[in-house]
């Protein structure tokens, strides 16, 4: 009479499980790139199709800021025109905006100017609490 051999109980070896886990862990650790985007937000005005009425701004509600190609800033508020260093821009704009919350800041950047000057100025304007900002170029 043949006697059947006892079957081995099948089992998944768990000794190397942590090795596998660590391998996967290292893979995800090295491939993960936290892609958090941060930036300065602004809403553009819609393109004019000629049907909209142009609103004329009063001079006292408009502050013009020019950035020339070397990053120098000139500011015109009312009739006063003056050069402003980048460091003081935030302080000055903050003062203007708290005095007149309706103030529109027009940021005009030279076409040959560098993008970083515009971003820096926009950063200062937003930090100063200016909400009505218009971007333009010559």
């Amino acid at each position: 009479m043949l006697r059947r051999k006892r079957k081995d109980l099948g089992g998944i070896p768990t000794a190397s499980m942590s090795d596998v886990a660590f391998l996967l862990l290292v893979f995800f650790l090295s491939t993960t790139k936290f892609d958090i985007k941060k930036g300065l937000g602004i809403v553009l005005p819609a393109a004019s199709d000629g049907t909209q009425k142009k609103v004329k701004l009063k001079d006292e509600n408009l502050t013009k800021i020019w950035i020339d190609q070397d990053g120098n800033i000139t500011m015109k508020s009312g009739d006063v025109e003056r050069a402003v260093p980048m460091i003081e821009l935030q302080k000055i704009i903050n003062k203007i905006v708290t005095e007149n919350p309706d103030m529109v800041i027009s940021l005009k950047t030279d076409r040959k100017s560098k993008y970083q000057y515009m971003v820096k100025a926009l950063d200062k304007l937003q930090a100063a609490g200016a909400e009505k900002i218009s971007l333009s170029t010559n």
Binding site: K37, K38, G39, L40, G41, I42, V43, L44, P45, A46, A47, V119, L122, D123
Partner: peptide, 14 residues
């Protein structure tokens, strides 16, 4: 972008 009517813009910065 203004002509395309995509008006919300972010300038990404560090």
């Amino acid at each position: 972008l203004r002509e395309a009517q995509t008006l919300r813009v972010y300038f990404e910065a560090k």
